[in-house]
């Protein structure tokens, strides 16, 4: 895997976040967060549960409005866009939800048809059925095309959600804890799939997790979100050598799991 400096050299960032603040009542979850994501890069945002990771990526697609700070995606300031402009950007940004968020009244085929029928230009004249089958094949779910989400296992749901995210051919994919709640074997399958997808479709990814082991495998760069700010960042190797107790805590977690697991 290429390191982050190689990827960054001479490129414009796809995502640029500067000084983002967000408060819910008295609870200020983001206190001035900064981040950049470059083409073909995999950046992992690592943080404890409730640290504001999901809020941060929801700011990127306009689902949450930041109180302060700048959020630029593909050069456009997200909070300043009107609905039409926001919808245009959203086609370029795939979002894999933690709970998969498949439409449970639709079959898998209809789940994939739903975004495609609203944006047919995204497959550039390609046959709709062919595009759906091709995506499902790439996530290993072609056989499940007529199944309802309730008939799919947890891992299959995650793969189906990834297929739905990919059907609009986005430039960026935001993953919200993609392996949480999955057994290690299925989690590894999802990780393999994410790497395959990135290679096949040339996407950049912003991945949210609290699992350092997963971050090690998938990331070019890790950003630690602690106390609402970008606490520190670096490659897995750089962070693993850190003497900072807050950074070490994430590695201890991996060690203890390896020890007991």
């Amino acid at each position: 895997m290429k390191n982050s400096e190689t990827i960054k050299s001479g490129l414009q960032p796809l995502i640029e976040i500067k000084g983002v603040k967000k408060k819910f009542g008295e609870n200020e979850v983001l206190k001035g967060f900064d981040l950049q994501l470059f083409p073909k890069e995999n950046v992992v945002i690592l943080g404890k549960s409730g640290s504001g990771k999901t809020v941060l990526i929801k700011c990127l697609v306009g689902l949450v409005e930041p109180d302060e700070g700048a959020v630029h995606v593909l050069g456009q300031s997200i909070p300043d866009l009107n609905q039409h402009e926001l919808d245009k950007i959203r086609k370029e940004v795939g979002f894999l939800f933690q709970g998969s968020a498949l439409y449970d009244s639709m079959t898998l085929r209809e789940n994939l048809q739903f975004p495609l029928r609203r944006h047919p230009e995204r497959i550039k004249g390609e046959n709709e059925e062919q595009a759906i089958r091709q995506i499902l094949q790439s996530v290993g779910l072609e056989h499940a095309i007529n199944l309802m989400p309730a008939e799919l296992s947890g891992g299959m749901k995650r793969r189906a959600a990834l297929a739905r995210t990919l059907i609009l051919r986005p430039q960026i994919i935001l993953y919200d804890e993609p392996t949480t709640g999955l057994d290690p074997i299925t989690a590894n399958e999802i990780i393999g799939l994410m790497l395959k997808v990135q290679e096949q479709y040339d996407t950049a990814s912003l991945i949210i997790t609290h699992d350092m082991d997963f971050a090690r495998v998938i990331s070019n760069r890790i950003v630690i979100l602690q106390d609402g700010i970008n606490y520190t960042e670096g490659t897995y190797l750089e962070l693993s050598k850190s003497q900072d107790p807050k950074v070490k805590a994430f590695f201890k977690d991996v060690q203890s799991r390896n020890q007991y697991g």
């Binding site: 929801k58 697609v61 689902l63 609905q83 919808d87 245009k88 959203r90 086609k91 940004v93 979002f95 939800f97 933690q98 709970g99 968020a101 498949l102 439409y103 449970d104 739903f114 975004p115 609203r118 944006h119 739905r164 609009l168």
Partner: peptide, 14 residues
């Protein structure tokens, strides 16, 4: 609750 409405929104559908 299951974020299906958010999923619709982020796929550029109202």
């Amino acid at each position: 609750v299951t974020e299906q409405i958010d999923a619709m929104e982020v796929s550029g559908t109202n």
